[in-house]
Design a protein around this nucleic acid. Structure first.
Length: 477
RNA sequence: UCCUCCUUAGCUCAGUUGGUUAGAGCAUCUGACUGUUAAUCAGAGGGUCCUAAGUUCGAGUCUUAGAGGAGGAGCCA
C-alpha cells in the first residue's frame, strides 16, 4: 500500500481501495471524524474512526495539531461536506499535540496573533493558501522568463558598492563592535574588516544585472533584497524578494510592454493552477468585507480583480498628463488632498496614485517620463533635459508595484549626473565601463515579489505573505 | 521618523460617572451523546486588568513615562 497525499485521495476516482495517509489533525468531531490535512491542498480528508473498537487511549490523543498515520479504506462519503472519506482501520499517533497549550485552535484567530506564531501559522487555511500561492507565483516568474529567452542571474547578496541608490543599507562587518580598529582621524578602519572595505547587504541587483544584460542580452534576478529604512507600514519589509529583469537593446516602451506582459502571465498562471486556494481566499475576503464599512469594501471579488488585470490593457500616462489630470481633479479643487498639486515637478504622493488608479482610470496605470530630479541617477535623460525615461506601474490597493527605467547609456551624461549627486566615479568604475565599451540602449525594472503576492492573495499586510517577516524591531524566528 | 488608536482569561472581546467578589463567547478539562462539517448538551477550572510611578478614602477605569501592537503618513518595491 502506497502513502498518498490528501490531494491525491480527494481526486481519486475509484473507491473501495486500501489507502494510507499521513498528516496533521485539524479537528476531531464527535469522537468519530478526523479532518486531516497534509499541506498538499487546502481541503481536508475526512477519516472516520470506528471509536467503539478503538483504544480509548488512542482516541484521547487525536487532538488538533497531532501528526497521525492512518490506514483504511477509501469510500464514498455518507456526509454532505465531501465526496470521499477514509474508513480508518489503523490509527497511529506519530506526534502528540497537547490540546491545552497548542496555540492554533479550531476557531478564527487574528492575523496579529498568528504572526506571533509564524512557525505554526501555515497550519491554518489562510496561511497555507497564501504560501502555496507564493510558491506558485515564484515558479511562474521563472517559467515566464525562461520561456522568453531570459537567463537567470544570481546577483551578489553582499555588495561592496554603497551607491546602488535605492535606500539605507545594512552594514556587514566582523569587526569587534565594542572595540573596532580606528583610523588616524578616529573613524572605524574598514580596511581591517573581513573584506578589507566597507560592505553592505544589497538593496538591488540592478547594477550587476546591467553588466550581464550587456553580454547575455536578456537576464533577470530574483532574490532577497535588504533595506534598512525605518519604515513601519503594511507595505514595507526590511528583507524582501525582488524580481529584476534587464534587457539590452530595449527602450522604455519595450520595458513597459515586457512588464505588462509579465504581470499578466504570472497572474494567468495562478488563475489556472491555484483555483482552490484562490477560491478560499476570495471567500475569506468576502467574509472580512462584511465587517467593514461600505467604502472600505472591495468592489470586485479576488478572482474577478485578477481577471480584470489580465484582460485589460494597463493605462499608460505620462507624468505631465497625470499632473494635468490631478490638477483639475475634484479632490484637488476642493482641497481634499493632503498635498495639493499646483505645479509640474511635484512628487506624487500615495493619495494621488490611488486617485489615478482607483478613481480616475479604474485599472492598472503605468506612469512614465518623470521629472529627472525626483528619480535615480542612472535613468535615461530625455531630449527635453527635464524628464527621464522612468516608469512606475500602479496597482489598485497596493500602489507602486513595479519601478523601472531605460538606463542612461551615454558615458558623459552619466558622469555629469553622478558628479551632480556626489557619487564618486571610483565606486562605480565597472558600471561606467559598460558605457565605455560597446554601450547600448537597455532597460529593466524591479518588482517587489511580496507586493505581487499581496495583490494575488488579497492580504492587506505584507508581513502575512512572507514566511518570517523582518521589519524594524522584529527579527523573531 | 511623525500622527492616531489599542493592550482585561489560552484566543476574540465587553466592562456604565472612579465604588463590594472583573464578565461573555470560543478553547481547555470532566461527564453525556454519537454520521459530524468551527458537532451538540450539562458542569468545572482558568486573571500580576502590559510595566512603573502618581492622583484618590478607593483605580481595569483618571494623569505621566516606558514597552509592545495596529492603522495612516513619509521613504520605496
Amino acid at each position: 500500500m502506497m502513502l498518498s497525499t490528501v490531494s491525491e485521495l480527494l481526486s481519486q476516482e475509484t473507491t473501495l481501495i486500501d489507502v494510507e495517509v499521513k498528516g496533521w489533525v485539524r479537528t476531531f468531531r464527535a469522537n468519530r471524524f478526523i479532518a486531516l490535512n497534509d499541506g498538499s491542498t487546502i481541503n481536508n480528508i475526512q477519516c472516520v474512526v470506528d471509536f467503539e473498537n478503538t483504544d480509548e487511549a488512542i482516541l484521547k490523543r487525536i487532538n488538533t495539531g497531532a501528526a497521525v498515520h492512518i490506514k483504511g479504506l477509501l469510500v464514498e462519503s455518507q456526509g454532505k461536506g465531501q465526496n470521499v472519506e477514509v474508513q480508518a482501520t489503523s490509527i497511529e499517533i506519530l506526534g502528540d499535540s497537547d490540546a491545552d497549550t497548542y496555540p492554533i485552535q479550531p476557531k478564527k484567530h487574528s492575523l496579529e496573533f498568528l504572526r506571533e506564531n509564524a512557525h505554526l501559522r501555515t497550519r491554518t487555511n489562510t496561511f497555507s493558501a497564501v504560501m502555496r500561492l507564493r510558491s506558485s507565483l515564484s515558479f511562474a516568474v521563472h517559467k515566464y522568463f525562461t520561456e522568453n529567452g531570459f537567463y537567470n542571474m544570481h546577483t551578489p547578496i553582499i555588495t561592496g558598492s554603497d551607491a546602488e541608490g535605492a535606500g539605507e543599507m545594512f552594514r556587514l562587518s566582523t569587526l569587534d563592535a565594542k572595540n573596532p580598529p580606528l583610523t588616524e582621524d578616529g573613524n572605524v578602519d574598514y580596511s581591517k574588516d573581513f573584506f578589507g572595505k566597507e560592505t553592505n547587504l544589497t538593496v538591488s541587483g540592478q547594477l550587476e544585472a546591467e553588466t550581464y544584460a550587456m553580454s547575455l542580452g536578456k537576464v533577470y534576478t530574483f532574490g532577497p533584497t535588504f533595506r534598512a529604512e525605518n519604515s513601519n507600514t503594511s507595505r514595507h519589509l526590511s528583507e524582501f524578494w525582488m524580481i529584476e529583469p534587464e534587457v539590452a537593446f530595449m527602450d522604455l516602451d519595450g520595458n513597459m510592454d515586457l512588464a505588462e506582459d509579465f504581470m499578466k502571465s504570472v497572474l494567468n498562471y495562478v488563475l489556472e493552477n491555484n483555483k482552490e486556494d484562490l477560491t478560499f481566499l476570495e471567500q475569506r475576503q468576502i467574509q472580512e468585507d462584511k465587517s467593514k464599512p461600505q467604502v472600505e469594501r472591495n468592489e470586485m471579488t479576488l478572482t474577478d480583480k485578477l481577471k480584470f488585470v489580465v484582460d485589460n490593457n494597463f493605462k499608460r500616462v505620462s507624468y505631465t498628463e497625470a499632473i494635468d489630470i490631478l490638477r483639475n481633479s475634484k479632490p484637488n479643487k476642493k482641497k481634499k488632498f493632503q498635498y495639493l498639486i499646483n505645479e509640474w515637478g511635484a512628487d506624487l504622493q500615495s493619495e494621488h496614485e490611488r486617485f489615478l488608479v482607483e478613481k480616475h482610470f479604474k485599472c492598472p496605470v503605468i506612469l512614465f517620463d518623470y521629472p529627472a530630479n525626483i528619480k535615480a541617477f542612472y535613468m535615461r535623460l530625455n531630449e527635453d533635459e527635464k524628464t527621464v525615461r522612468a516608469m512606475d506601474i500602479l496597482f489598485p490597493g497596493i500602489g507602486e508595484i513595479v519601478g523601472g527605467s531605460q538606463r542612461e547609456e551615454r558615458l558623459e551624461v552619466l558622469k555629469e549626473k553622478m558628479a551632480a549627486l556626489d557619487i564618486p566615479e571610483e565606486e562605480l568604475w565597472w558600471y561606467l565601463d559598460l558605457r565605455k565599451y560597446g554601450t547600448a540602449v537597455h532597460s529593466g525594472f524591479g518588482l517587489g515579489f511580496e507586493r505581487l503576492v499581496m495583490f494575488v492573495t488579497g492580504m492587506g499586510n505584507i508581513r502575512d505573505v512572507i514566511p518570517y517577516p523582518r521589519s524594524p524591531q522584529n527579527a523573531e524566528f
